[in-house]
Nucleic acid binder design. Structure first.
Lengths: 155, 155
DNA sequence: TGGTATAACATGGGAAAACATGGGAATCAA
DNA sequence: TTGATTCCCATGTTTTCCCATGTTATACCA
């Protein structure tokens, strides 16, 4: 049994006519070993799909549940947004998930998609969009190089 | 056997002439696997129906019982309202619940309803109302974005 | 090192199961 | 009896499951 579970690497896969995509093998291994499930939702900040293990969202739900604040308005908004958009995406015996119309549209994905590891989460991008985004990020990082340490701590 | 039980996603279903609605399949799976029951009540803050597992209300009751002086009188009143309004909603063999006149009226639901996941709870909205509400929430959340980041980083 | 066998993987397509939904019969209460 | 509620069956659609194929990566042996 391994100790760490990190979504890594960048993998390009095809999206077929039914909206199915192969989940990278490494990701599938994580799901199997943790006994959890993949959950996806529209990224709040970028035109991409974001995914993580259901465990992560469950932690969030437990925090809310235990906060002794059953009727908080702020919590209400947040939970609606997060859980209302998220959905389980189990993969079949060949390792594919079926992404919904809503997600594909948000990420402008048609016939192929790029999986990008982010540690505890991962993202799914339209290939061209990701190319631009990666370039943007690299430039941005170089620009703020001196305070790079700082920036990483934030996110 | 899964580890986590979260109401998620946004699902639009029809309400037939008898007042019956299909409970989303994922929700039914949760009910079956937990052996609990769906409980619904009128939301205190919004024109919608709120639902959860009976287990959750039991937990709320326990919290009230164990830390009486911890809660404000207001919280106490709110809890009374919920328990006074809540009722079990079992589903039939085809997976449908029959929502009461009272609930439907409160949520202004006539011929279709939207189920919105909230983690340990879920809501049922009139489709048009939900559309407006979601827009409102998105704007609201973006406004307080920094604290959202905070919340996500935690988990 | 080079070449081959083997396994893992991505992907296409079709069959089977699950699902939402309409309608009717049976049951129950006023 | 009337109206409402529960239960069951029927149908069309969507989703899931499973088999087949080609490709890539890995392991093995000479």
């Amino acid at each position: 049994m391994r100790k760490t579970f990190l979504f890594m690497d960048t993998v390009l896969n095809k999206v077929d006519a039914k909206g199915r995509v192969s989940l990278p093998a490494d990701y599938r291994a994580i799901v199997k070993e943790t006994g959890s499930e993949i959950v996806c939702y529209r990224s709040l900040s970028s035109p991409c799909i974001e995914g993580c293990l259901e465990d992560l969202l469950d932690k969030l739900a437990t925090q809310m549940e235990d906060s002794l604040d059953f009727f908080s308005a702020t919590q209400d908004d947040l939970t609606n947004l997060v859980f209302g958009d998220a959905k389980r995406y189990p993969f079949d015996s060949t390792g594919r998930v079926m992404l919904s119309e809503k997600l594909l549209k948000h990420a402008q994905i048609t016939d192929s998609a790029v999986f990008v590891g982010k540690g505890r989460k991962f993202q799914i991008w339209n290939p061209e969009n990701w190319e631009k985004e990666e370039k943007r990020i690299r430039e941005q990082v170089l620009k703020v190089r001196p305070s790079l340490k700082e920036a990483c701590r934030e996110s």
